[in-house]
Simulated assay, not measured.
Amino acid sequence: MTQSIRSKKILFLFTELSGYILNSFENALSSGFDIHVINYPVNKEAPFKFTKNKNIYYCDRDQFKSSHDLSIFIKNLNPGAIFISGWLDKNYLNVIRNPSIKFKKILMLDNPWRGTLLQNLWAFYFKLFYKSKFNCIWIPGEPQLKYAIKLGFKKKDIFEGLYTCNNKIFNLKNTLSLTNKSKVLLFIGRYSEEKGIKELWQNFVSINSTLDSKWQLWCVGTGNLWDNRTLDKNIKHFGFVQQEKIIEIISKAYIFVLPSKYEPWGVVLHEMVSIGKPVLVSDNVGSSSCFTNNGVNGFVFSHKKENDFKIKMKKLMELSNDELKKMGKESVNLSKRISVESWVQTLNKIYD
């Protein structure tokens, strides 16, 4: 096999798949890449049903019982580059350290730098035993940049834009006219502590009780807080919804809220600004650094500031329709900072 043919063959050692990453793979395929993916089973809390392109080759992670099995598969595949999703899978890491695996290796990382003792220790350990095995690193954006540097990567070897939303689904053409929006706040995510959903329910009920014209809060998702969800006549719990059916729900909502206490990136924010939603997000949402401009397309709040979440939610709910529409237009402008096209361009730069 010639180098020119092999140079477009790439392998992703992945964890859980998502609709947006599959869309990115499909666009790379259209740009001449031969894509192979090893991936984990679907998350039970988010059992999305994916339509996989038959020209992209997927293998279940469970097929490989050891790093030796993975090494044999990789050497037979003979890819031009290997993209590794983080470091949770020890067999993935063992393959990277295997001296017989000489292909270009790229680390994909979405953890933000938090400066914890564990992160500092791991950064030191990684530089000693793994850094030399990787050619470069691909991160979502600014919140991960410091971590990449701490791991020993030089700025020229750090690429941003790892995640982008599925623009086939999330775009203005797939939503109703702005004039049809109802007074609805929308949350999409897991029902879990780190998503800040309990505070969302509490603040909404409190604020709504003071308003003459009531809002509704629509929540899409499931998780370990489902059985303890707040029941209120103005809160609607949809449960888990497949992606192809979620647009109808999104199109009828006015404002998107993501109050996470920890969110390494949050592609859902990119999805919502692409559709033209004003947003209310916490400063713990990694993608807020890219897709929000505080006071312009919504508000960013801090869980560390007392009542900041509640104050900014109330402020947003009291804005006029014209003010919300203006924010929605600004969201669309910000959404263009990362795209599927830029994702493929970065993939080519990394490979070259």
Rank of each mutant, 00 (worst) to 15 (best):
L117P: 03
T51M: 12
K75I: 01
L70C: 08
I139D: 11
K49W: 05
Y130H: 15
A148E: 01
L88Y: 12
I96Y: 01
F73C: 04
L128G: 05
L151R: 11
W113N: 09
L162A: 11
P99I: 14
C136I: 04
F129N: 08
F124D: 09
L88K: 10
F124Q: 11
M108C: 08
Y125S: 14
P41K: 01
K133R: 14
P140G: 13
H68Q: 09
G32D: 04
K54F: 07
F134W: 13
Q63M: 10
Y40P: 04
W122Q: 14
N43A: 13
R97H: 03
R61C: 06
T51C: 08
V37K: 03
Y92L: 13
R61D: 08
S85H: 09
G141K: 04
R114G: 06
K44V: 05
S85F: 11
P79H: 05
K54Y: 03
C59P: 00
Y58M: 03
S132K: 15
L77P: 06
R114Y: 12
L70M: 13
K65R: 11
F73M: 05
I38W: 02
I149G: 00
K49H: 12
N78I: 03
G161V: 00
G32I: 02
G32S: 06
P143L: 10
D69G: 02
W138Q: 04
